[in-house]
Amino acid sequence: NGDSPPTVSMAELDHLVQIISKSHLETCQYLREELQQMSWQNFLQDEVERYQSKPREVMWQLCAVKITEAIQYVVEFAKRIDGFMDLCQNDQIVLLKAGSLEVVFVRMCRVFDSQNNTVYFDGKFAGPDVFKALGCDDLITSVFDFAKSMCSLHLTEDELALFSAFVLLSADRSWLQEKLQVEKLQQKIQLALQHVLQKNQREDGVLNKLRCKVSALRSLCSRHTEKLSAFRAIYPDIVRTHFPPLYKELFG
């Protein structure tokens, strides 16, 4: 009935960890070494002001493009997760439509500098003030706070990979046709995540902290949708003609 966790051998869990970690590293957009080479360069004040003085719609379009690029990597990640492509096409679409932006937010902690409260964006590290022209200060603050709290967990790449897969394979999304199959896959991923956390000798509370992040992610994504609706109400033509088609498909 889907309530009892599936029986999985240690070897199977190790294999799942290996596959998902590999998928994550192959599709994570930026390798840690590449980020280190960027030497955590921050935008200068005049560059910040240039972003701030962009028209609202231009900044929205720029962010939509960056989000869409990141989402394309998440789609590739999903495709390489064991069992994802075995789900029916409807459910693959449902899971990505609901979860791809959530995974982008999870992945953000890899490109986030907690000490300076900056994130890698458009070639350098940007603080929340860079995004002022969007007119969504509250959402931006929440996104930065989320990245900071994810960073404070100091997840390894393996742990981050499995948590991303866990988020993506959420069995409680609306409109799933084969909910039970998604549920089984998510339970296996959760067991693999627990397995890795134990192996890495993480304290017991980490899994609970990660579970709390799931609801924070949902809140961030629904607020993004609200902000987009408000923006679209004022600039319908900009969204229609200038926003990336994939972004419109996912959030329209």
Binding site: Q72, V75, E76, K79, R80, M85, Q89, N90, Q92, I93, V94, L96, K97, W175, P245, L246, E249, L250
Partner: peptide, 17 residues
């Protein structure tokens, strides 16, 4: 759903590189 998400569907169909 597939009809409304043609690009996503296409990305899913493309073989992984």
């Amino acid at each position: 759903l597939k009809e409304k998400h043609k690009i996503l569907h296409q990305l899913l169909q493309n073989s992984t590189s």
